[in-house]
Design a protein around this nucleic acid. Structure first.
Lengths: 158, 158
DNA sequence: GGCTTGCTTGGAGTGCACTCCAAGGTTCTA
DNA sequence: TAGAACCTTGGAGTGCACTCCAAGCAAGCC
């Protein structure tokens, strides 16, 4: 799976609308104007372990990470953006296999825009379903919590 | 773990408010006025496999299921109510270990009301957190879906 | 009675998403 | 220049929640 050095994010097409990929207020205050991070810096920044970062790369969920002249990983801000987005996908409940599929589509270039959109829309539907499910459970939980609150331990009134 | 035959649901204390445990409109139209179901009937009703039902019992997530004179399981409507509730707990994302803990509390009797309430309230908080997370991912998904929609595959306008 | 379908058990297997290990090379600080 | 702390790899291990298996009874129908 040789990857032509295609940029990771959707900022692929020249003057297309810039996609900063889940930026906005940065999660952790990303260290200064740096652009080369060791694996442990990235681990701290993302909350993932170094193990998991290596594993992500092995399974194709990372877009070819730079290496130092001795072979150690050097992550860039672009990688951090990607990981932030992957973190969001993970929160949706998307499987790792599907996230890898998405990453492959990104590597394949602009012509996969439509398929990527479909994947995200399907994920979006799943999220809405899940939210509805959770709200359904809230109703039951509230019902039972109220029951327990109304009938405290070893109730006297038979 | 010998369980004194304490009823499963919270309807334990004599004239306490009746807790029908997530009833309301029954999920599947529970077969007639029956009160003894085989494992495969319950599997169909709940959507769980027979394997899973046996496993639930083995790990202490079921409250001692009746047996026929030859040792086959005979589930009651009460068991079905319990499984419906367990299904809700599962949807909250509660771990099986915590569900077993809850089942133990139920078996222990009314004096565990307070602990049960706390467990459910902690679960409730988790659910609210999860809903917020999911809504956060919705924002990102919508942002990217719109990006892909606005820049269709192989865009011409460079 | 014979046949098919269903139920029983303990224990082993599966798939997912990490998580860790050993053995060795690299980088940084004093 | 020594030592501590960090990094590398392939592969093995972990925990969760099921999921299945084999071998043997049980139930319902003609």
């Amino acid at each position: 799976m040789e990857s032509t050095p295609v940029p990771v994010l959707e900022t692929t097409s020249p003057a297309a609308p810039v996609d900063v990929c889940a930026s906005g207020p940065r999660p952790h205050p990303r260290p200064e104007g740096q652009d080369r991070y060791t694996i442990s810096e990235v681990a701290e920044y993302t909350g993932l372990t170094a193990h998991t970062l290596r594993w992500y790369e092995r399974i194709g969920l990372m877009p070819h990470v730079d290496r130092s002249h001795t072979g150690q990983r050097r992550f860039t801000n672009r990688d951090l953006d990607w990981l932030t987005f992957v973190g969001k996908l993970r929160l949706t409940g998307m499987s790792v296999a599907d996230m890898v599929r998405y990453a492959e589509l990104v590597r394949e270039g602009d012509h996969t825009f439509e398929e990527r959109r479909q994947l995200l829309e399907s994920t979006r539907r799943d999220v809405l379903t899940r939210i509805a499910e959770l709200q359904g459970t809230l109703a039951v939980l509230d019902y039972k919590i109220e029951f327990y609150a109304g009938a405290p331990a070893a109730p006297e009134r038979s």
